[in-house]
């Protein structure tokens, strides 16, 4: 008996070593054991707190990728939303929209790599071009609102006429009054815009939102253009003088969606046919 104790005392480290290894391998083989499920994993409160804290720093370094991912997600959701809205037009329950018409809008995410707001005619450059399916004439929107229209395309870049352009007009609708007019930039403040051709007997209030109307083939209907900032009328005018606060902040636009209307060409061709008749 005494020799046994002596043996244990002599090789206690070896025995401890074997014990710890057996314990470790017990944990490895029994992956569902109580200890590893309950305590020793990253859902452990202290471990999780620690990781959360370290993740904050990492997240900050990854903001760029996070933004890209969010923009991509928004693109997908936008497409679904527009498709859904278009297949269920409001107030006309008996009318069923053609599914091709409903899903005519396609979105592509692009990054703004160059942008001006100070000039009277402003353009921005996107990092995608013909290779990504972008064609002149497509609409461009940002997560917050309307941005512009594609003007030129090279293989990998495209230039967009932003709505801060003297000749750019959007068919816009006042949502509350349901009245259609034209929105246009007057070339002064890159955060303000004018809304034209709203007759004086329409009720317009400050803060009413203005969205793109159904009467254009470039943008999906219902994209926010801006909100009414000020309404004034001069006695010698037939229309309201409406100032809008733009929905898109052009000084920090970074990701945009290029909107492709797959039926635009067909619509334009059809509408073109009546022009010789009109003459």
């Amino acid at each position: 008996m005494f020799e046994l104790f002596q043996f244990i005392a002599r090789s206690r480290n070896f025995i401890l070593f074997i014990l710890l290894e057996v314990l470790s391998f017990y944990f490895i083989i029994n992956t569902n054991n109580y200890w590893s499920v309950e305590f020793f994993n990253t859902s452990n409160y202290y471990a999780a707190k620690f990781l959360e804290w370290s993740n904050k720093a990492k997240e900050y370094a990854r903001l760029r990728e996070v933004n890209a991912a969010l923009a991509e997600e928004n693109r997908r959701l936008n497409r679904q939303l527009v498709q859904f809205q278009q297949s269920n037009p409001k107030g006309q329950t008996s009318y069923k929209t053609d599914s091709i018409f409903a899903s005519r809008f396609q979105f592509t995410v692009a990054r703004v790599i160059n942008n001006t707001t100070q000039h009277p005619d402003n353009y921005m450059t996107l990092d995608k071009g013909r290779a990504d399916g972008i064609r002149p004439g497509m609409g461009v929107i940002s997560p917050t609102g309307v941005v512009g229209k594609v003007k030129l395309c090279s293989e990998h870049f495209s230039v967009v006429t932003s709505i801060l352009h003297s000749e750019f007009m959007i068919s816009a609708r006042l949502t509350r009054a349901n009245e259609i007019g034209t929105a246009r930039w007057d070339g002064v403040d890159p955060r303000r815009m004018k809304m034209l051709y709203i007759s004086r007997n329409t009720k317009v209030a400050r803060g009413d939102s203005v969205v793109t109307s159904e009467y254009n083939s470039t943008f999906p209907p219902g994209i926010l253009v801006g909100r009414v900032l000020r309404v004034s009328e001069s006695p010698d005018q037939t229309f309201h003088d409406i100032r809008l606060l733009l929905a898109t902040n052009f000084s920090n636009v970074s990701f945009v969606y290029v909107v492709e209307n797959k039926l635009q060409e067909e619509q334009d061709q059809l509408e073109k046919q009546i022009e010789p008749i009109k003459k």
Partner: peptide, 13 residues
């Protein structure tokens, strides 16, 4: 370390 790698036992062994 195992706790953070979710591999209880491996690093310990």
């Amino acid at each position: 370390v195992d706790m953070f790698y979710n591999t209880l036992g491996m690093h310990a062994a």
